[in-house]
Design a protein around this nucleic acid. Structure first.
Lengths: 188, 188
DNA sequence: CAGATTACAAACCGACTGTCGGTCTATGAA
DNA sequence: TTCATAGACCGACAGTCGGTTTGTAATCTG
């Protein structure tokens, strides 16, 4: 079980890359399985053999994207020991990453609607939200009973500013605004 | 132009009410035009005479919902003269309203994906966001150059907490957390 | 009254998702 | 070496859905 498994994995990766691009360019609804088939040269049966359906394909794309984001943010934070500085660095890294239209459309816009809020939230917990909550907790600036909710609110706020930057907003102003926002929140 | 216009308006209202319920219950994607037709007793031609398409129907539903929300929040704020207190009252009213599943699903989850982020943002500007920005500006707590961005971030944060309350979170804890969040932001 | 406009009806079309029976080939045991 | 099995892949097909088109009856307008 080697050549077969490798072929399967390669096919899944190929489809995943193509689907990622298409979902990002056109959004979930306007991306047909048909065109994924066309661009990948795969047959219907083959695709449905690897992915249970269109939403399962989207979920795989989202998972891969979130994982990649998580890695990049971890890299941006690595080596920073001061909790507040690490939080700040992570947030700014995330805002830069969100300039990528792939991330905007897939992670921030379509994901909650396609996967449903609960499942979307569960996945965020394992990636961006989990990291942010840990960082925010480390600063000790937020009362423990509010940590979870404040982490959620902060992530939502940062996501929103990332979306605004991505849609033609001024990057430097947004960064300054987010830093001020963070400064106010962390002051106790 | 009286009897006919009235009949048309009545039909539109009927369809709007049914569509609102269906979109809220099942979400946009899982609500077929077919079932709207069935439940309203209308024919395809009639529906497409009044609404250009499924997305136009959704947009009408969203517009009506946002308008209703705006009215309720204005009522909750009416009479309060202190800007910070008014902001606080409006935000808390909004969190209570967002307990309604209709609002959750339609306004917070599906709207950005269905209408596209730009058009969704434009509509928010005319309703919840516009009100929040005005209230935040009146407090004078935020530097003018950050007002727009901070208003966006704050609204996103409040929306997120509203969603968490709606999905089984504890209401009183959330309210306390949001109040603390607001307090920190408004301190200058 | 006559023509235009509006509300509504129903057949129909193209596109899309997901299913199903089947083929081919690598793999591992006899 | 042989052969049964399982996984990769294929393509036809059914069912659903959004949207169009053609037609009809009622109402409004001049």
């Amino acid at each position: 079980m080697n050549l077969k498994a490798e072929r399967g994995a390669a096919t899944r990766d190929r489809v995943l890359a193509i689907a990622t691009r298409l979902f990002a360019d056109r959004g979930y609804d306007d991306t047909s399985i048909e065109v994924v088939l066309q661009e990948s040269g795969l047959s219907r049966g083959a695709l449905y053999h690897h992915y249970a359906g269109k939403d399962a394909l989207f979920e795989a794309v989202l998972e891969a994207t979130e994982s990649a984001i998580g890695g990049k943010i971890l890299a941006a934070v690595r080596g920073i020991t001061d909790p507040a500085a690490a939080l700040r660095a992570g947030v700014l890294a995330w805002i830069s990453l969100a300039g990528d239209p792939v991330i905007q459309r897939i992670v921030l816009i379509d994901a909650p609607a396609v996967m449903g809020w609960e499942r979307w939230r569960a996945m965020e917990e394992r990636y961006s939200f989990g990291m942010l909550k840990a960082a925010l907790g480390a600063t000790g600036a937020v009362p423990a009973e509010f940590l979870d909710l404040h982490a959620h609110m902060l992530l939502a706020a940062v996501n929103e500013s990332a979306l605004m930057v991505a849609r033609g907003g001024d990057h430097t102003t947004a960064v300054a605004a987010v830093e001020e926002f963070l400064r106010r929140l962390l002051r106790h």
